[in-house]
């Protein structure tokens, strides 16, 4: 059984069927479909961060760099007025992002803890200012994508990216695949080595594994996925802005991942849903939503020891 923890199994069985049917109920209101799409895209990003922080113990505050790069790589390499193939460009973007991650990872993975937080932040800030100051890519005001890629494989178009419902299903599929992918990774030999490194790097080295290389592989993989999420986000509205790379984006992703329950992967989806849901409800209720958001975050940290996923697990344990 792939989704082996009971809570996780429940979550997968409740969330994905619901998400599959959701657009049927929301036909009247395309906004909710788009909103859910945005949340799911961000959840992919948070999941990739959650793997790094929770599973590998590599705390980064620069992950948004790859989220933004996902958009900017597309802007840089794709022709402006010509539809390109979605899958081919997904491949290009992931590979380029992975190469960038390989170089940066090579430098930053020498540090650990707070120092790693700060050095990843440093690289992300450099990228942020590069795109924000440069005039070539729209600078601070951002840049538009005029033509969306088409998604045909062998001449069969699966999704029409201009149709919000189609795009919703593409993102739902991506979300499920990402979760599935991380499950496979975690259960693989690679994943076990990563877990062992997280537990005790010294002993893993003694067992003959090169800790640095394993960490670098994990970092590269998660960064490429982060870029994929950023690519999807850019395609949703066709708008890229340097604020995607801002440290606040990394910060909110980190908050969602901790809130969901670090290292549980599916918790990242929970964390993103809860955070975005609260944000949405509070900002419609009161202008001072920030106050209540802050207070709720504080309350949740104190009440939930291992995030929402941890809380649910404990709840189920008590029941049985």
């Amino acid at each position: 059984m792939l989704f082996n923890k009971r809570t996780e199994r429940y979550f997968v069985w409740v969330f994905f069927p619901l998400a599959l049917l959701m657009p049927l109920f929301l036909e009247q209101n395309t906004f909710y479909v788009s909103k859910l799409t945005t949340v799911m895209i961000f959840a992919i990003f948070v999941m990739s961060l959650d793997y790094l922080v929770g599973r590998c113990g590599l705390i980064t505050l620069g992950h948004a760099m790859f989220y933004g790069l996902g958009g900017y790589i597309f802007v840089i390499i794709a022709p402006e007025y010509e539809a390109v193939n979605f899958w081919v460009y997904t491949f290009y973007i992931c590979v380029i992002a992975a190469l960038v991650a390989l170089i940066i990872g090579f430098l930053v993975l020498r540090t650990s803890g707070i120092y790693m937080i700060m050095i990843t932040l440093a690289f992300a800030q450099m990228a942020f200012y590069y795109f924000s100051d440069s005039i070539d890519f729209g600078g601070n005001d951002g840049v538009f994508i005029y033509v969306k890629p088409d998604t045909s494989i062998f001449g069969i178009s699966l999704f029409d990216l201009d149709n919000p419902i189609h795009f919703y299903y593409l993102c739902l599929l991506s979300l499920f695949n990402t979760l599935f992918f991380f499950r496979l990774v975690i259960r693989s030999r690679f994943g076990r080595v990563i877990d062992s490194i997280h537990e005790n790097p010294g002993r893993t080295t003694a067992l003959g594994y090169n800790v640095f290389v394993f960490r670098l592989m994990a970092y590269t993989m998660a960064s490429a996925l982060g870029a994929y999420a950023g690519y999807l986000f850019t395609l949703q509205y066709g708008f890229v802005n340097p604020s995607m790379l801002a440290w606040t984006t990394s910060g909110s992703a980190l908050v969602m991942s901790i809130l969901g329950g670090m290292g549980s992967i599916y918790g990242a989806i929970l964390g993103t849903l809860v955070y975005e849901g609260l944000h949405y409800v509070l900002e419609h209720l009161t202008e001072h939503w920030l106050l209540f958001m802050g207070a709720l975050i504080i309350l949740m940290v104190i009440l939930f020891k291992n995030g929402i996923a941890g809380y649910l697990e404990k709840l189920l344990e008590k029941r049985s």
């Binding site: 922080v53 705390i59 803890g113 707070i114 910060g251 980190l254 908050v255 901790i258 809130l259 670090m262 001072h288 920030l290 106050l291 958001m293 802050g294 207070a295 709720l296 975050i297 504080i298 940290v301 104190i302």
Partner: peptide
């Protein structure tokens, strides 16, 4: 440490809101 990060981010929100 990460729980502390989350807690203090919550505090940033509260302080910003109170300031406003």
């Amino acid at each position: 440490h990460l729980d502390q990060v989350l807690l203090t981010i919550g505090m940033i929100f509260v302080f910003n809101a109170l300031q406003s």
